[in-house]
Nucleic acid binder design. Structure first.
Length: 288
DNA sequence: GCGACAG
DNA sequence: ATCTTGTCGC
């Protein structure tokens, strides 16, 4: 039982979800609320969190929800929480939060009970914030429910409000020269919904950053950039790696531990970056 | 009927 | 999201 999930929720459910998004949307704060967010060096920032949900291959309900906390500026994992969950909602573009957010909220609450001193000061979320059909993506949704600054980090452009991944957009991407270069994503109404960010000198595909909650777009982009050793910022990347490893460790091949080191993420490795030159990607630290 | 579609 | 090795480039 409970192996299949309805391909698409009834129209009535979508209507209820939209109403809920509209209700919570009024609470979003799209500006800096913390002192460290305005500091050029982010002094005062000590912990950055990342969340992700990975799925079991042939199953539409089994998944692993993960929350990691990294120290800043070292970007070392100081907390990790992976848990198998049973999803109750199917994936519908525009309503990702209703599928994943309940389990992410649970993870944050477990941290609050267990190690409140390790609570992150900001959370990078896999998905969009205000760059969304109803202006209320998963990063906003999670931010409101846990009342923490959140940043939406998407790997693909969500084509809403006139935004299109067309030839012009691709040309703008081509013109991004170095890591840190970006351009605004303006919606039809003339509002800047987010920024396309080249997160690394040798990264071809940009990240699509948008405000989730309690942070300005400028600070969101700046923070995302300083968290990038690869294309995807470390908090989100570590959450992804660890949730996938957890699944393999739990249901995967019985033999040796799946990935003896970091893998995943297709072509995100920097070619040669003197900044990180001879880094130590062999760190297998699992604090706690 | 055809294309679009965060994760 | 998931299925996946080697390979090209600096």
């Amino acid at each position: 039982m409970a192996e299949e999930l309805p391909g698409s929720p009834p129209e009535e459910t979508l209507s209820l979800w939209k109403r809920e998004q509209a209700r919570l949307k009024a609470r979003v704060v799209d500006r800096d609320t913390e002192a460290w967010q305005r500091d050029p060096a982010f002094s005062g920032l000590q912990r950055v969190g990342g969340v992700d949900v990975s799925f079991v291959k042939g199953d539409s309900v089994s998944a692993c929800a993960s929350l990691v906390v990294l120290s800043y500026p070292e970007l070392k994992v100081v907390y990790e929480d992976c848990r198998m969950v049973s999803l109750t909602a199917p994936y519908v573009s525009g309503f990702l939060a209703f599928r994943e957010v309940p389990f992410l909220v649970d993870a944050v609450r477990r941290l609050q009970e267990k190690d409140p001193h390790l609570m992150p000061q900001v959370l990078l979320v896999d998905g969009n914030g205000v760059l969304h059909h109803q202006g209320f993506g998963v990063a906003c949704h999670l931010g409101i429910l846990i009342d923490l600054p959140c940043i939406g980090v998407a790997k693909k452009l969500l084509q809403v409000d006139g935004l299109e991944n067309n030839a012009l957009h691709k040309e703008k991407i081509r013109l991004l020269r170095a890591g840190g270069d970006s351009f605004p994503l303006m919606g039809g109404s003339g509002t800047v919904l987010g920024m396309a960010l080249k997160s690394h000198d040798h990264s071809t595909k940009p990240l699509y950053i948008s405000v989730g909650h309690k942070i300005s777009l400028e600070a969101a982009v700046r923070l995302t950039l300083v968290c990038c050793r690869f294309r995807v910022p470390e908090p989100v990347r570590q959450a992804d790696i660890r949730s996938r490893d957890y699944i393999r460790r739990t249901l995967g091949v019985p033999g040796p531990p799946a990935s003896g080191r970091e893998r995943s993420q297709k072509a995100q490795r920097p070619k040669a970056c003197p900044q990180w030159g001879s880094e130590e990607p062999a760190g297998l630290e699992i604090t706690h």
